[in-house]
Design a protein around this nucleic acid. Sequence first.
DNA 1: GGCCCGGTGATTTTT
DNA 2: TCACCGGGCC
Length: 740
Amino acid sequence: MDQETILKDLNPPQKEAVVTWQGPLLILAGAGSGKTRALTHRIAYLIAVQNIAPRQILAVTFTNRAAKEMRARVETLLDDHAKGIMLGTFHSCCLRILRRECHHIGFNNDFVIYDTDDQSRILKSVLQDLKINDRIVTPRIAQSRISRAKNKLIIPEKYLQSIKEPSFLDEQIVKVYKKYQEGLRANGAMDFDDLIVNAIELFDQFPEVAEHYQDRFRYVLVDEYQDTNHMQYKLIRQLTKKYQNICCVGDDDQSIYGWRGADIKNILNFESDYPEAKIIRLEQNYRSTSNILKAASAVVRVNRMRKVKELWTKNQDGSTISAFEAQTEREEADEIVSQIKKIMQFHPEVKLNDFAILYRTNAQSRSLENGFQLSRIPYTVVGGLRFYERKEIKDALAYLRLVTNTVEEMSLRRIINVPRRGIGSTTIERLSNFSKLNKCTMYQAMERCDEIATLSSGLKRKVINFVDMIERFQEKKKQVPMDDFAQHVLQETGYYAHLKSEYGPDREDRLENIQELLSALKTHEEEVIDPSLENFLADVTLVADVDQWDDDQDSVTLMTLHSAKGLEFKYVFITGLEEGLLPHFSSLEIPEQLEEERRLFYVGITRAQEKLFLTHALNRNRYGNESLPSTPSQFIKEIPEELIEELTRTTRRNKRRTKFSTVESSARKVDIDQYEQEVEAPEDNDSIVLKVGDQVRHPSWGVGEILTCKGKGDRQKVTVRFHNGMQKRLMVKFANLTKV
DNA sequence: GGCCCGGTGATTTTT
DNA sequence: TCACCGGGCC
Ligand SMILES: Nc1ncnc2c1ncn2[C@@H]1O[C@H](COP(=O)(O)OP(=O)(O)OP(=O)(O)O)[C@@H](O)[C@H]1O
C-alpha cells in the first residue's frame, strides 16, 4: 500500500489530516464527514508510508462495537500489516497494560474484573456490614456515586472535600466507597473504572513505567474524543506528554455520554492543552441523503449549548423521511417488519445487513424481537445482556475461577450452593465470620470448618465434600484439555443436571450457551499462543460477544442509539419516539440532559444513508403487561414538516395478538415468499389442560413440547419448543393447541 | 437451617 | 417480565 492509494479516496482536509502525522491534531467535524475514515487512513499512512511499527500505535475507542469496526477498516487497508496495533476500548487497552504491570501497584496479575453485577453484590454486603439502611443508600445509588467519583479521579479520602455541601447521604457514601475499595483489594479485583484509575495511578507513581509506555505508544489516536471523561482524558495526557503525537477525532454534537462523566470541555480545550495543535474541520457529509442531513441539522440546531457548525452534502435529496404512528408496540414492530419486507421485495440487492432498528433502552428490543421472530426474519441484537454476563455462563466461570483462584470470594459465594447442596445463607455467614476472625480466606475457613463450633456435623460434612470436590478438580485440571476439564466440572458439580432440570422458557438457550462456552475454551486452547485456563479467564469479562458466526450471517441489526454511534446503515428505523422514552423521563426537567437526548436523536438520524423511518406507539407497555398511553416525542416536530411523510398502516391486525386478518395474510404471501408467513389462528378453543412435558400440536408451527406452564384457565400461558427449533410463549386460549 | 412459593417493586444509555 | 424478600413448611 503506497501513499497514493492511501490518499486517493480522501478530500483535501482529510488528506491534510493524514499527512499531518506528527504533533497534536484535532479533527473536529460533524456526523458522516469522514472523521473515522481520516483516522484509519492516518494509521495506514503511519505504518505504510512513515514506516512506524504497528506496536508503536495506540488507537482507542469507547465501545467494543466501534473498536471492531475500526479494526475491520484498518485491516481492509493494511491486511496483515495491521497486526500489532494496540487497538481497543480504553478499558481493554488498560487491561492489557495492567496485566503486565499491576505488580507495581500491589495486584497479582491474575486479578479479577468485577462487572456491574459483581459490583452490586459487593456493595450489598458492604451496606450490610456497615449496617447502612439499604433503602436510603441502594447498591445502585452507591454504585453510580462511586463510579462518578472515580471518573473524576476522586479517591475516598477526598470524596467529601469534592462536594460543596456534603449531605448525610454523601457521608454514608464515603464509608461505602472506602469499604468497597477494600473489598475489591481483598479479592484481588478491579471494577471497570479501576482499570483506568489504576493505569493512571501506575503511571503517576512509577514515572519509569509511564515513560516506557510513552516510548512504546509513540502515536496515539482517539476516536469519539467528545466522549472522554476526566480519567480517560488524564490517561491520554499522561501517555502523550513526551511526544505529543496525538490525533483526536470528535464531534461535540454527538456527545452522548455525559452521564458517564464525559466532558465536552476536553475536546473544546484541546488547543490549550496542546498549544501546537492543528485543528482540521470537515464539513462535507458523505453518508446521508440531503433530506436526512437537513432533518438532522434542524434537530440539533434546537440545542442552545452548542458551537454552530454546518454540514453540507453533494448527495441527492433522496426519499422523504417516513413517520409511522402505531397503536401499540406490537403494531410498531409489525410495521417495521412489513416495511423491511417491502423494501427487500422491490430492491433485490438490499441485504438484511442494510437495516438497523434503533431504540433508547434495551428493554424495547423485546417487542421488536417478537415481531422479527414471527416473521422469521433473521436479526441480531447488539448489546443488552452480554454473553459473559449471562447467569449460566457466570456460574460456570465461577466454578472454573474457583479452581484456579480460591482467594477471590465472589466466585465461591456465587456457586457454593448452586446447585443446592444444603449450604445455605446461615452457613455461609458463619464461614465468612470465621474467616474474618481468623484473617483467612473463606475457602480456608471451609477447609478448617472443623474448628467452627456452631456448625452441625451434617453441615461440616457438606462443606468438606465441597472442598474435596474442588481439590479433585485442581488435580484433574492438570491432566486434561481445557474444554474437557470444564465439561468435567459442570458434570461433577451437578450444574449440568441442574440446568437440565430447571424447566424454563430458556432452558435450551442456557444449555446452548454452555456449549458455546466450551467451544470458546477449545478455540482458546487451539488458537492462542499461550493457552491456559488462567489466561482465558483473564479477559473474559471484557469480551462482549462470542458470536463470530453471526458476523457472516445476513441479519437485521437491533441496538440502542448509544451503540449505533459511529456506524452506518442504508435503512434506519428509530423507534419508540415518545415522550418519556426519547427524551427519557429522567432528562425531561434538566435542560442539559434534554439536549443530550436530542443529540442522541441526532446521532440516530445521521446513521442513515438512504432512508430514515421514525416510529412511535400510542400505547406502550411499561413494566409487564400494563399498557400506558404514550405521546409522540417533541423531537419529531423539530424536523421540518416537508421532509416527513406520514405512513398509513400496511399491516392490519386484529387487536388480539396471535390473529392476522386473512386478507392481509394472503396479500402478503403473494408479495414475498422468501419468508414464511403467519397463518390465522382460530380463536375458538375448548380449554384444554396442559402440563409441562406434554406434546402439543400448533396449526402452523407443528408439534412441540411444553416447557413451562403459567396461569390457569383462560389466562394459562405456556412455552412450547417446537420441533423446528422455534420456541414460543403462547396463550392457551388463543393458540389453538391440541394435545398429541 | 434450608428451600420453595407467592407477593412486590423496579427500569437509561456502556465498560 | 424479572429479581428480591419474607413467610411458611420440611
Ligand atoms: N472523502 C470521501 N469520499 C467519499 N466518501 C467518503 C469520504 N470520506 C468518508 N466517506 C464515507 O462517508 C461515510 C462516513 O464516514 P466516517 O464513518 O468516516 O464518518 P465519521 O465522521 O466518522 O462519522 P460519525 O461521526 O457519524 O461516526 C463512510 O461511508 C465513508 O466511507
